Computed example of a mutant assay.
Amino acid sequence: MENQSPATAAPSQIISTVHGPIGHIELNRDAKLNALNLDMLNELSRVLRAWAQDSSISLVLLTGRGQRAFCAGGDIADFHAAITTGRHQDFANLLATEFDLDYLISTYPKPLISLAHGITMGGGIGLASHAPVRLVTANAAMGMPEAKIGYTPDVGGSHLLASAPGHFGEYYAMSAQSFTGADAVLLGFADVVVTEGFAENILDELDEFVGLNAGEIAAAIEVMHGAPESFALEMDQGWIDHAFGAVTPQEVFDRLQHMVHPSAQRAAQQLAANSPTSVASAFYNVRAAREEQDLRSALDRELRLARYLMYRPDLAEGIRAQVIDKDRNPTWSPASLEEVDHAALRSLAEGTED
C-alpha cells in the first residue's frame, strides 16, 4: 500500500512515498529537467534525515521523474539572478546546503539507491554518484559542465574526477565534455549499468533486495539486471594522460595543440572555448582532490573556489551566454590562460589563502 510521506512539503517538486520497507524520493520538476533549487534541497535533506531514523524503512530509492533527465544540476538561472543582484551570500548558502546534502547521501546509514537516467549533470551528479548504490542507464548523459559557464566542478565532482583512471579527471573537468552512462562505471561515477526494463520498473523489483547491505544489493542487481558497460574510453587514455598529465594548465593546452590526434585537437578547441579562469580552476581543483582523496575536504575546497568565482565576471557572463540569451558567445575576462590569477586559484585549492 502506498502512503504519502508526511515529510513532503513541496509535492510539485519533491515527491516522497513509502512502500512497505522502501522509501522512494522522486525529483518532480520535469519542465526544468529536475534542476535543483533551495526548496528541493531542503526537502530532500529533511526526508532523508527523517527516514534515516525511521526503523520501518530499510531501503531508500532516489529517482527523477520524466524521460529527459534525472537532474540537470542546479537552477543556474536562479544563480545568475543572485550574483547579478548582489545576493552572493544567498548563492553561497545554497551551495553549502547542497554540499551538506551530498555528504549526507555519501554517508547514509541505510542502503540508498540512486538511478541516473537522461541528463545527469552537475548537481545531479552530486545526488546520483555519491549514493551507496549507484545505478545508471546506458544512455544517460553525464558530466561536470561548469567550465562552460565560468564556474568549477562542485558537489564533490572534483573528488569523483580525481578518482577516475589516469588523468580522465582533468580532461572532463577542463573540457566540460560529457560522457554516457555506459562509461560511468569505468570513470567511477556509477556502480552498475542497468537495463532499460529494470530502470522503468525498478520499484517493483526492489522487494527482494530488502535486508541486504549496499554492496550486496549492487552485486545482485549487476548479476540480475546489469547491462553492458563501455570500455571504449580506454582507447583514449594514452593521449589524455599525456596531455592532461602536464604540470600546469597552460602546458596541458600547449600539449593538446601540438598533438595530431583528432580527439586531442577537439579537446584543445573545447578548452579554448571555455572560461580560462574555470579551466585553470578545474585543473587545480582536481589535482588537490587527488592528493587528499577525501569527499568532505573536496566539498570544502569547492565551496572556497565557488566563493571566489561568484565574484568574478565569467560566471554571470557564462550563464548569460549559455542559458539566458543562449547566444553561445561569451566574452571571458581574462581572455587567456596566461592572464589568469593562477596564484589565487592554487592557494584556494590548497587551502593556503589568507
Score class of each variant (00 low, 15 high):
N3F: 11
Q4L: 14
P6D: 11
A10R: 13
P11L: 09
P11K: 08
Q13D: 09
Q13K: 15
I15G: 07
I25H: 02
R29K: 14
R29T: 09
A31V: 12
N42W: 07
L44M: 10
R46D: 08
A52M: 07
Q53D: 14
S55I: 09
S55N: 10
S56T: 15
L59C: 05
L62F: 10
R68H: 13
A72F: 04
A77D: 07
H80N: 05
A81L: 13
A81E: 15
I83N: 00
I83A: 02
G86D: 12
R87N: 14
R87A: 15
R87G: 14
R87T: 11
R87E: 14
A92E: 13
N93Q: 15
A96C: 11
A96I: 10
T97L: 15
L101G: 00
Y103H: 12
I113F: 05
I113K: 04
S114T: 13
M121C: 09
G124P: 03
I125K: 00
I125L: 02
G126S: 03
S129G: 05
S129P: 06
V133K: 01
V133Q: 01
L135A: 05
V136P: 02
M142R: 04
M142D: 02
M144T: 06
M144E: 13
E146Q: 15
E146C: 12
A147D: 04
Y151Q: 09
T152H: 12
P153D: 10
V155T: 10
G157V: 01
H159C: 10
L161W: 00
A162R: 00
P165I: 00
G166C: 00
F168E: 01
Y171E: 02
Y172E: 03
A176L: 03
F179C: 03
A184E: 04
V185M: 08
F189G: 00
D191M: 02
V192I: 01
V192Q: 01
E196I: 05
E205F: 09
L206T: 02
D207M: 08
V210A: 01
A214N: 00
G215D: 10
A218N: 04
A220R: 11
A220I: 06
I221V: 07
V223G: 07
A227F: 06
E229P: 06
E234M: 14
G245W: 12
A246L: 05
V247N: 10
T248Y: 07
T248W: 08
Q250N: 12
F253W: 09
D254Y: 09
L256D: 01
Q257H: 11
H261T: 10
P262D: 10
S263I: 08
A267I: 03
Q270K: 12
L271G: 02
S278K: 07
S278I: 07
S278H: 06
A280R: 01
A288Y: 06
A289F: 01
R290H: 11
E292Q: 14
L295P: 01
A298G: 13
L303T: 07
L305H: 06
A306K: 08
L309C: 03
Y311Q: 13
Y311G: 14
L315V: 08
A316P: 00
E317L: 08
A321C: 09
A321E: 06
Q322H: 11
Q322C: 08
V323D: 12
P330D: 05
T331W: 09
W332A: 00
W332Q: 00
L337Q: 03
S347L: 12
T352E: 13
T352S: 15
D354W: 10
